[in-house]
Amino acid sequence: MKQNKSGLGFYERMGGKEYLRRKSEFGEVVVDDVAYGWEDVSVLCLEEK
């Protein structure tokens, strides 16, 4: 969610780029969502040595 600054910061530090914003409804509560994505998800994998 857009209000979750620590969550958004995590995805940004992991190299994610914002690619979508939308509104979601939970009952009568409307929240702003932000989606992040990666061109190459292999950067998220740990390499064993």
Rank of each mutant, 00 (worst) to 15 (best):
V43Y: 05
K5F: 07
R13D: 08
R21M: 03
D40T: 01
R21N: 03
V31R: 15
M14D: 03
G27C: 07
V43Q: 11
Y36M: 04
V31I: 10
G7H: 04
L46A: 09
V30T: 15
F26V: 01
K49P: 12
V30L: 11
G27T: 00
L20D: 11
E48W: 01
K23T: 10
R13T: 05
E48V: 09
G37S: 04
S24R: 15
Q3S: 13
D40Y: 06
K17T: 00
R13G: 05
V43H: 05
V34L: 01
K17R: 10
L8E: 00
F10C: 09
E39P: 12
Q3I: 07
N4W: 03
Y19T: 03
R22M: 14
K49F: 04
G15P: 08
R22S: 14
M14Y: 03
K5L: 14
C45M: 12
V41R: 12
W38F: 02
Y11V: 01
F10Q: 05
E47A: 07
L20T: 07
D40G: 00
D33M: 13
Y36H: 05
S6C: 04
L44T: 01
C45R: 12
V41E: 14
E25T: 13
C45W: 13
V29E: 15
E47Q: 07
V31S: 04
G27P: 13
L46D: 12
M1D: 14
Y11N: 06
E48Q: 09
E18D: 02
V29D: 14
R13M: 07
E28F: 01
L8V: 03
R13S: 09
C45L: 15
E39V: 06
W38S: 01
E28Y: 00
G16P: 13
L8N: 02
L8T: 01
D40Q: 02
V30C: 07
V43F: 07
Q3D: 15
K5Y: 09
S6E: 11
Q3G: 07
V31D: 10
W38L: 03
V30Y: 08
K23C: 03
D33W: 10
D32W: 02
S42R: 15
F10L: 14
F10E: 09
R21A: 00
K5G: 01
S42Q: 12
V29F: 07
S42T: 07
K49D: 13
L20K: 11
D32C: 02
G7A: 04
F26M: 10
E39D: 15
G37L: 00
Q3A: 14
D32N: 08
Y11E: 10
V34H: 05
A35F: 11
L44A: 05
E25H: 12
D40R: 12
N4G: 00
N4F: 02
L20N: 11
Q3Y: 06
E25K: 15
G16R: 12
E12L: 09
R13Y: 00
S42G: 09
F10T: 06
S42N: 15
V34C: 04
L20H: 13
L8P: 02
R13A: 05
E25Q: 14
Y36V: 06
A35K: 10
D32M: 03
V31C: 09
F10N: 08
E18W: 02
E12H: 02
E18S: 02
S24I: 11
L8D: 04
E18V: 02
